[in-house]
């Protein structure tokens, strides 16, 4: 567990939809729950962020909100990469999926994935986010 309780955690958003990225960033910003919001337009961008800041623990998010349907690398493919990360990292940095999908298959897959702590439906609801962050702290 991070030692410094005074700094607020960091959150990462992974979503190819720039409008949703903007809406959700703004919404999270208003809550003031997080010190920093890392907005990534693709899974690759997120992975790149991790590889470039792997040695700086203070730059890593504690929560990733991951979209499911994205071109090239979708949410599940991103999770395949995430799976291979060291367990200390996964412990600190949890993944919740955030999607507008109503596809039963996607929903079941997300719920069955051991690395996904929660599947949230778009639009992002403040209550859901607070609950999630509350459970994590």
């Amino acid at each position: 567990m991070p030692a410094n309780l005074n700094t607020k955690p960091i959150i990462m958003l992974v979503d190819d939809n720039i409008i949703d990225l903007k809406i959700n960033s703004k919404l999270i910003e208003i809550t003031g729950m997080f010190s920093e919001i890392i907005a990534c337009k693709s899974g690759q961008e997120a992975l790149h962020y991790f590889s470039s800041s792997a040695n700086q623990a203070d730059k890593l998010p504690t929560l990733i909100l991951l979209d499911i349907q994205m071109p090239e690398m979708d949410g599940f493919e991103f999770l395949e990469h995430y799976k291979k990360f060291p367990s200390a990292f996964k412990e600190k940095c949890a993944v919740a999926m955030l999607s507008s999908t109503l596809d039963f298959g996607d929903i079941q897959r997300a719920q069955a994935n051991p690395h996904v702590i929660k599947l949230m439906k778009k639009p992002l609801q403040l209550i859901d986010l607070k609950k999630l962050a509350g459970n994590r702290s």
């Binding site: 939809n17 949703d20 809406i23 919404l27 349907q69 999908t101 109503l102 778009k122 639009p123 403040l126």
Partner: peptide, 17 residues
């Protein structure tokens, strides 16, 4: 239907904001 829903959900998200 899925494609239509994604931007619609964005609109609802904006209203929430």
């Amino acid at each position: 239907s899925h494609e239509l829903r994604a931007p619609l959900v964005s609109v609802i998200g904006i209203v929430n904001l």
